[in-house]
Design a protein around this nucleic acid. Sequence first.
DNA 1: GTGCTTGCAAACAGTTTGCAGATAG
DNA 2: CTATCTGCAAACTGTTTGCAAGCAC
Lengths: 148, 148
Amino acid sequence: MDSQARLDELLTRLREQGYRLTPQRVALVQLLIDSKTHPSAGQIYEQLHAQFPTMSLATVYKTLHLLKEMGEVLELGFGDDDNRYDASDPDPHPHLVCIRCRKIIDPDVPVFETLAQEVAAASGYHILSHRLDFFGICPACQEEAAEN
Amino acid sequence: MDSQARLDELLTRLREQGYRLTPQRVALVQLLIDSKTHPSAGQIYEQLHAQFPTMSLATVYKTLHLLKEMGEVLELGFGDDDNRYDASDPDPHPHLVCIRCRKIIDPDVPVFETLAQEVAAASGYHILSHRLDFFGICPACQEEAAEN
DNA sequence: GTGCTTGCAAACAGTTTGCAGATAG
DNA sequence: CTATCTGCAAACTGTTTGCAAGCAC
């Protein structure tokens, strides 16, 4: 789905559920969808603060919470770092994390429905979701390391 | 590997690297290895506090940090919850998380070396590690839900 | 106009750190 | 004996919350 379509979809969904389309919310949703790097709340705040000098971090968190509740955004927590947010596709999909520059991208890999089914069958769990992350060093950081 | 062998291995490795085997450390390592539920720092602290009434949370964290540095323990962070620790097998392996009771177990599933290779080839990343978590409801919690 | 939303500041939880006294080797 | 480790308390970081003023509808 292209960014524009996803943006329209999200804004429509917000309006339909009775939420107000404040400039801050629209800007945040736009930023989140345009970004390919899955930004953190702090990064979102920094960028929006340029547009809205009075905007607070609390609003960022409240809006992200709202989108999470609606199931329109994936919250990627790592425990040792701040959470990252992915609104491009709300269904679980793998992520590829550079442990050096902390960039996170969506790699193109086939999903594995079968594995989840196997796990469910073997464990008796009712599996609702999953998460698959790869950690490594991105091409840019590999080059940088080679130079030094 | 059985628990006793793993415990010996870990204690030996600590000693070899010049770390002191304090009673607190030995008890923590033992607890971690015996536990099948991947406890949090707080849970570890509560249990050890029964044995060592003066033991502090800081010591728990410091010891976990040490084991992490040695690569002998897996730290499982989720972002919305406290971190969980797995010392049974320091190599990455899938986890199965009950979203109701927060129990975490190691399911028996084949690992997928091929997928990591595919991702590496397609992205140019140098992949070092990965993490695969399934989220669902464990059999006990399913029953409990059915009763109510 | 109504009441949801914002922005501030304070609260919060998990984790980390500094330091003085305790202790493993 | 000595360097490491412990335990306390305070600091820190990311996130959440309460509340009065502001603004979307």
